[in-house]
Structures are given as C-alpha cells and as structure tokens.
Design a protein around this nucleic acid. Structure first.
Lengths: 165, 165
DNA sequence: TTTTACGTACAGTTCAAACTGTACGTAAAA
DNA sequence: TTTTACGTACAGTTTGAACTGTACGTAAAA
C-alpha cells in the first residue's frame, strides 16, 4: 500500500455505524446514506450520493426525502449551484433522540386515542346489555393497555425534557 | 344483535394495540399474536392460536419462539396436557421496557466494540504514514460516533434503573 | 413394543418492499 | 423565446421476508 486509501476504513465505519442507526427505525439504505453524508462532512448532491453508494438517483431522492422528514438531514443553499445539496445534521445524539421521541409520542398518542374510542364503544354496549364476566375481563385488559400508553407517553416526555434541558 | 359478540371489539383492539407493540420492533404477526394472547388472558396452544389468527401452525411455532426469546411470553406447564402452552406476560410496561432496553444495550455495545476496533486500526496506520487532513477529519467523526454510543448506553442504563427501581 | 400426537426443520411459494429507468414538469440558462 | 439541467412521479422489475405444507424426530400413550 503506497498511497493512503481511506476507502476501506470509511466503508467499514459506514457498515458498522449504520447498524446503530437502523435501531432508530431507519431502513438500511437510509442508514447508509446518512452515515455517508455524516462522514463526508460536507453538503452533497443527489448525483454524488448516487455515485458513492452505487444506487440510482431516484433512490437517493426518495431516501434523502425520508431523512429530511425525520429532521436528520438538512437542505443547503449555495449560490450558483442549481443542484439540491443535503448535509447530515451533526449533533448526533440530539438529532436522533428528538426525531425518535417525536415519532414515539406521535404514534402512541394516536393509538391511545383509537383505544379510548373503543372503550367508549364498549361502555355504550354495556349499558344496553348486561355485562358478562368475559366482557368484564376485556374491559380490565383494555384499561391496562390504556395505562400502558400513559406510561410510555410519560417516559418519553421525560426523556424529551432531559435531552433538551 | 341478540347475543353479545365481543369478536368485533376484540379484533379492533388487536389491530390498534398491535400498532403500538410494533413500535418495539416486533413484526406485525408477532404483535398480533402477543395481543391475542394478552387479551385471552389464559395460556393457549399452538393449534388454538393458529385457529384464532388464521395462520399456519408452523408460523405460530416460529413467532411464539421469537416472543419467548424476547421475554414477552412464557411457556406454561400443566399436568396431563402434552401440548405446549404459552401465555403473555401481563406486566406490559415492565415486560416491554426490559426487553427493549436489553436489545438496545446489547446492540449498541456490540457496535461500540466494532467501532473501537476500527479506531485502533486507524491509529496503527497513522503511525506508519503521515496524517492527511482528510484522515484527521475522519478520526474526529469517528470519535463523535463513539461518543454517541456512550450517550445512548448511558441513557438506556438510566432508563433501566428507573423502570426497575 | 407399536402407535399416536406433537413441535419444528426445511424447501417451496407468495407477497410486499426496495430499487431502477423512463418520462415528465419545472425552472434556470442561453 | 428555446434549450438545457434538474428533481421526482410512476410503472415495471427484482429481491428478500413472510408464510405454508410436508416430512421428520421425539416422546408420550397404548
């Protein structure tokens, strides 16, 4: 090896770090794309990413959009350049945690509401008919599930506070 | 509606609650299976689950095994019954959080180690050759990534303490 | 012992998600 | 204005995961 070549090492880091990022719910390609952007340190065009990762430009477009909606990358403007430029947000912990917590809170809130609706429905039916012990048990379980959601929401709200304090 | 029929309501709960459970990284079927077990309240056989969810027995076997490895369901022994019986662990929050945190810690530890190895490798190479500014930047990014892992591990360790206190 | 009933390994199939290439709309450049 | 360069919608293709049925190993029952 005469000239120093960082390609191998960079690739290895990408593979390894992408595994961690996938834990945050990203697809393998989203993860690879983010890591590549992060390591490169600069804002890149779709064509550059496409070239570097060996994937189609369409795929880059789709995946960078996902990352953008998750607030993990940011579009950058530079005068004189017509192409879109994207860079990875560099505050890893804050960036990923905020994104992750938001998704959890949004999703659990949604499902919490859905389950509350179901509970209403049960209560209406229970007034009309007599309650079987089977129904009683179902209501009990449903209450536990609702409480479970409350606990999750509490936990993630606290995390949110801690991370942004 | 003459006879009270909980089937519709139960199905709706399964659909809704499964969405929440999927957030913990379970597949749709794993989620449905767990929810069904949880709502039924009793220990069930593979055949009963297969019948109830309309999926093959093989599929039940595979998925119940996954849930078991995640410590979300427990195998139950009852004398005189040859079939395997499984019940859902009923302490939802504790059960899911412990399972989830374990997976995060295990995974991030693993990847942390992998990245440390890469760092060693870089340091060896840097002694042999002179360090380019590009390499310097790569090392810096890698350090940030390693620190990111440290932060995640710290966070989940703290969560673990809080949940089991 | 033989027979029966069970769980699961494995190969094949089905289905959904990931990915690509083309073709189009749009906005800058000429 | 026309031309060029870009991002992306969309249809088609590929790939991998989910799922099934059969066939087997094992242990209880007869």
């Amino acid at each position: 090896m005469v000239t120093p070549d960082n390609t191998n090492i960079t690739d290895t880091i990408i593979i390894e770090f992408s595994k961690t990022i996938e834990m945050f719910g990203l697809t393998p390609l989203e993860a690879r794309l983010f890591t590549y952007l992060y390591l490169s340190g600069e804002a890149l065009t779709l064509d550059e990413m496409s070239e570097a990762l060996g994937k189609s430009k369409t795929s880059m477009s789709t995946n960078i959009r996902s990352l953008s909606e998750l607030n993990l990358v940011t579009r950058v403007w530079r005068k004189g350049i017509r192409k879109d430029l994207y860079k990875a947000n560099s505050q890893l912990f804050k960036t990923f945690m905020n994104s992750y917590i938001s998704r959890w809170l949004e999703a659990t809130n949604q499902q919490h509401d859905g389950l509350e609706d179901i509970k209403q429905q049960i209560e209406v039916e229970c007034k009309e008919n007599s309650i079987t012990s089977e129904q009683k048990q179902l209501i009990n379980r449903l209450d536990n599930i609702l409480y479970f959601h409350t606990q999750i929401e509490k936990l993630f709200n606290e995390m949110n506070q801690n991370i942004n304090k």
